[in-house]
Design a protein around this nucleic acid. Structure first.
Lengths: 218, 218
DNA sequence: TTGGAATCGAGAAAGTTTTCTCGATATGCA
DNA sequence: TGCATATCGAGAAAACTTTCTCGATTCCAA
């Protein structure tokens, strides 16, 4: 089960986002006591196209048996390994508001490739508080922390106005990837990884579909 | 500025998700005192392809002037109208944990097509509490509330295990769209709108890219 | 008034993702 | 053992999205 970097290029984003769905279903099947699974099974449960599932699953590098499918536990491990979920990366959090606090409480991130090891904020009220076991530190300490601990990931849960400067701070400390929850466009130098988690994107999609649905009903 | 339902079909999801990005940039430009904007301007600021921006903007139905672009305030209004962000829909929240509480605090949802008007939970500790001005009610009251107020949207911020049953409850009350924050696959009858907001999707993408990046550095 | 430059709008081309099709192979049953 | 069936794996086709190209229009400056 090796990761050939040359094979790891050119993976469709859409496939990447479907793997967690499979992963979750598979874990449910494990819990239900199953030991083998086929792409057709997965597709049936999730309402997806079987071929699409197969293509996605093939990406991980696993080889199945015709007429049988895959060994359930093996497929789970291949997905974990493919996504790097079995090698959790450290992350720092900027912004300990309600969203940031909620993120700090998500212990399960650890089993999905990430653990938040420190939290930072500018609010004197928040600094020094402990949230889910981590003490909130002054934001200005963030770059040093990242530098010393070689933290690869930064999570931004600040107001939009602060997002870019926080990102710059993270970059200055040597972070390599940013998970941005602030509703703001962030610019990073080339080679840095940016993952935006913008609720307003979903809200746009949801709102539009609802309007279209309204129109249909008239 | 009318919404022709026949024109509102077949909008690429990707375009729908880019509109909020434009919207935000445009508001920044308004704040900066600009009065006109071209697709080229937007593309430059956001690092996107100008043609793509133009195609997306055209979807809203706005007509621009060659050599000039669009009137800034007009474009903002067209996007709002296209997405339905100027006609906020009521929503009920199920699950008043840390994420649910954070969502209740997002007053800005109202300007983006949605307002959470009530919160529900099963935890006796939480029931009766006021969170950001709304009292948490017993989950079993949700269907009646939805029925009486004709609430179109349900937000699920419960643990994964409860997600499907909460969704069924919402459907039974006559909800039409569900915004699901629980990491669970939800099945809805045909015709219902489901928007999944799954942090693990992003985590998969982020983690994978980081691994690929690691591989490059070796 | 006229020429040049910038932009829109629309259609064509290229690229990407999803779906279809088919051959190979393993399993279970007669 | 031999046959029917389910599934993988791979390549082709179809659908969709993004990017390219070009003509039409408007503004600005000479």
């Amino acid at each position: 089960m090796q990761n050939n970097p040359s094979l790891r290029r050119e993976i469709p984003e859409a496939s990447l986002r479907r793997l967690p769905i499979y992963y979750r279903s598979l874990q449910g099947m494990v819990a239900a006591g199953a030991s083998r699974v086929s792409c057709a099974d997965l597709a049936r449960v999730l309402g997806l196209d079987p071929t699409q599932v197969r293509k996605d699953v093939e990406m991980t590098g696993i080889v199945g048996k015709p007429r049988v499918g895959y060994a359930l536990d093996e497929l789970v491990r291949w997905i974990e390994n493919f996504l790097g979920w079995n090698r959790p990366k450290d992350a720092v959090l900027a912004g300990a508001g309600s969203l940031g606090s909620a993120l700090l409480g998500y212990e399960r991130f650890r089993r999905h490739g990430m653990q938040i090891v420190a939290a930072f904020d500018t609010d004197p009220e928040k600094i020094g508080q402990r949230i889910h076991g981590r003490e909130v530190q002054p934001l200005m300490f963030l770059p040093d922390f990242v530098r010393q601990h070689k933290t690869p990931v930064g999570v931004i849960a600040t107001p939009a106005a602060a997002a870019q400067s926080v990102a710059d701070l993270m970059v200055s400390g040597g972070i390599r990837a940013i998970w941005n929850f602030a509703p703001a466009h962030i610019h990073l130098p080339d080679g840095f990884i940016l993952q935006n988690e913008d609720l307003y994107h979903s809200l746009a999609s949801l709102s539009f579909k609802l309007e279209a649905n309204n129109a249909l009903r008239r």
